[in-house]
């Protein structure tokens, strides 16, 4: 069993009539994701054609979840409205079924909006938020699977490696590395590179530890904040499965934001050196080069008697 998202999870698309939403909805359907419709306020009653089939559009998330019994939603709403879209989804899932997964892809949401949205989600314990500013979450299946986000589906295969990362393309790199040693993935999660986000490393590690399909974990961090250090310390006490790690940004200069809003070394804190040291202290096998993740993973699997 994968984590949080089953292969056949029913998924809604918020912003399905927009350019980004429609493009990625098409890709998700193509991959085999069980898209059940979308939500665009003011366009309720319309349909959207994806891969030759028509999908319904609702005015509100409450209506959409009530009608489809969706398990998850993915948000492609522009930054000014994305914080509100997260809260609408949280409210609707909580009211209608008491649980649900919200995946927010949008990049560039004001931090204050995320502070409010995250607090709103935390007050509804059945609701999980992944992102924002992330590639999403994917649970590869035997045929297709659940791809909720913008990652290229075809590079994945069902397997036993759980992947969690702050970065998008670096996650794809990690996926390719597992494939290079003949390993597939249970679930891959991009938690996003913003300073304030929903699900963090520790929740992902806990879920992978509890998941019977996952037998080893790849964790990819980057400079800024202390999430990697906290996760490493937690893993040392709580995770029995092998973990392989990498941290991006060893050559990043202090005080400069490196693309992601959260990727900045400030006041001498949040360096890659500290994060690698925390990983090593927690017994996480580190690759200094992402092209070596496969080899390091293979060695860890052998050491654990899994190969």
């Amino acid at each position: 069993m994968p984590i949080w998202i089953e292969e056949d999870a029913k998924v809604l698309v918020q912003g399905i009539t927009g350019k980004q939403g429609m493009f990625h909805a098409e890709k998700m359907v193509e991959y085999g994701t069980n898209i059940v419709g979308g939500c665009t306020p003011g366009k309720g009653g319309q349909t959207v054609e994806l891969q030759g089939s028509n999908f319904p559009v609702w005015n509100s998330m409450t209506e959409a979840i009530t009608e489809t019994d969706a398990d998850a939603t993915v948000i492609y709403v522009p930054p000014p409205f994305a914080g509100e879209a997260i809260m609408e989804a949280a409210d609707a899932f909580d009211k209608v079924k008491g649980e649900g997964v919200i995946v927010c892809i949008t990049e560039g949401i004001p931090t204050i909006d995320m502070v409010k949205a995250v607090a709103y989600v935390y007050n509804r314990p059945g609701i999980r938020l992944i992102g924002p500013n992330c590639p999403g979450i994917i649970t590869p299946g035997e045929n297709g699977g659940a791809k909720i986000g913008i990652m290229p589906g075809h590079i994945h295969a069902k397997g036993r490696i759980g992947i969690v990362s702050k970065s998008g393309t670096l996650t794809y790199e990690a996926v390719a590395q597992t494939m290079s040693i003949g390993e597939g993935q249970s679930t891959c999660i991009g938690i996003g590179g913003d300073p304030v986000n929903g699900t963090g490393f520790i929740e992902c590690l806990a879920a992978f530890e509890a998941d019977s399909q996952t037998e080893a974990i790849v964790m990819i961090g980057e400079i800024g904040g202390t999430a990697e250090e906290d996760a490493a310390a937690w893993a040392a006490e709580n995770v029995t499965k092998p973990i392989v790690g990498f941290v991006a940004g060893a050559t990043a200069p202090p005080g400069k934001r490196m693309g992601h809003a959260g990727a900045i070394i400030s006041g001498g804190k949040g360096t890659a050196e500290e994060k690698f040291a925390a990983f090593e202290a927690a017994g996480i096998a580190c690759a200094k080069d992402p092209s070596e993740l496969g080899a390091v993973l293979l060695e860890s699997l052998k050491k654990a008697g899994l190969r």
């Binding site: 998008g168 393309t169 670096l170 790199e173 990819i220 990043a252 992601h260 990727a263």
Partner: peptide, 11 residues
Amino acid sequence: GAGLAMATMDV
């Protein structure tokens, strides 16, 4: 990608 761009510099 920002993460991959940093990793490229590192490598």
